[in-house]
């Protein structure tokens, strides 16, 4: 499998990269980890005429807590997320998710920003970002702008990143209090795209009530989605089994899966229900052990 020919640039500053994007127009693509793009190019599903490799631009890879936010540079590799102490201690959802993304070699190169900017509802991080209430920082030649995750995904392989822009940072409200998060996807074999996946985050107040909640779903809608009705049911509740069951039921009703080799619509809704329940319970038990 061999890609069509293209031109390649590896600028060393963001400004240069953005200038090149403007110069080359629509046929240019950014090469981040390349582990989604290069396979598509090999199969000739994608044939950009220019590739702009942003791996040589310093300062796009970091994980830090600052201004009440967990900030992750867009070029941070999955493996760096997996191994980060901050994340291991407080944001368990990333450990759950990264372990299930492709395989270790792919995670050595695949980036968090790339996973989001690819705009694929089958990817795992979009659901995680919904659960955590993330925003995404996008840089263009007008400077930076921040887009809430709810406004980020526009369609199949389409996101808020416009031509001439680069996704540069992911911003997540920092964990505080009794905060727990979890992710799981059903997959046909390790490294597969999700048959259905659920990301959940909860924060529990001193009175045992849910003070914050987020639920994102993987690969059960044409674009990554938030399970809003489930969240509403949980927020302010006592997180009883009945409420969790109700939330899981809502998620299974509100998603919109399509039949494929992984399963039919009914099976996927069933999985969403089962996994939502499990991930909420896991997030709750983690929340209780935190803080």
């Amino acid at each position: 499998m061999i890609a069509e020919n293209f031109n390649y640039d590896a600028p060393s500053t963001l400004e240069e990269a953005i200038a090149l994007l403007h110069q080359y127009g629509d046929d240019a693509k950014i090469l981040a980890g390349g582990h989604s793009l290069v396979p598509m190019m090999k199969l000739r599903f994608a044939s950009p005429t220019h590739l702009i490799d942003i791996n040589n631009i310093p300062g796009l890879s970091y994980i830090k807590e600052e201004d009440g936010l967990l900030k992750i540079g867009a070029m941070t590799k999955e493996v760096e997320v997996e191994e980060s102490e901050i994340i291991k201690n407080k944001y368990h959802i990333f450990g759950d998710a990264t372990k299930l993304i492709a395989d270790p070699q792919v995670r050595n190169f695949g980036t968090l920003g790339g996973n989001l900017a690819h705009g694929d509802a089958a990817n795992d991080h979009p659901a995680v970002m919904f659960a955590l209430g993330a925003s995404v920082e996008i840089t263009g030649n007008q400077g930076k702008r921040t887009v809430p995750i709810d406004e980020f995904f526009h369609g199949f392989y389409m996101t808020a990143v416009q031509h001439g822009e680069v996704l540069t940072e992911i911003q997540i409200p920092a964990a505080s209090g009794n905060y727990g998060s979890a992710y799981h996807k059903a997959e046909r074999k390790v490294g597969d795209y999700a048959t259905a996946g659920v990301a959940a985050m909860v924060q529990i107040g001193a009175d045992g009530r849910c003070t914050k909640v987020g639920i994102g779903l993987t690969n059960v809608n044409s674009v990554p989605m938030r399970a809003s009705r489930s969240e509403e049911a949980l927020l302010g509740s006592d997180l009883s089994e009945a409420v969790i069951n109700q939330a899981a039921q809502y998620a299974s009703e509100d998603c919109n899966p399509s039949a494929d080799l992984r399963g039919d619509e009914d099976y996927k809704r069933h999985l969403v229900k089962v996994i939502t329940k499990r991930m909420l319970n896991l997030a709750i038990s983690r929340a209780k052990n935190q803080g």
Partner: peptide, 15 residues
């Protein structure tokens, strides 16, 4: 030092 699938890397990336 990082294990890599060299079928998914462009040679130019190895510069």
């Amino acid at each position: 030092g990082k294990s890599a699938k060299s079928c998914t890397l462009l040679a130019v990336q190895a510069n």
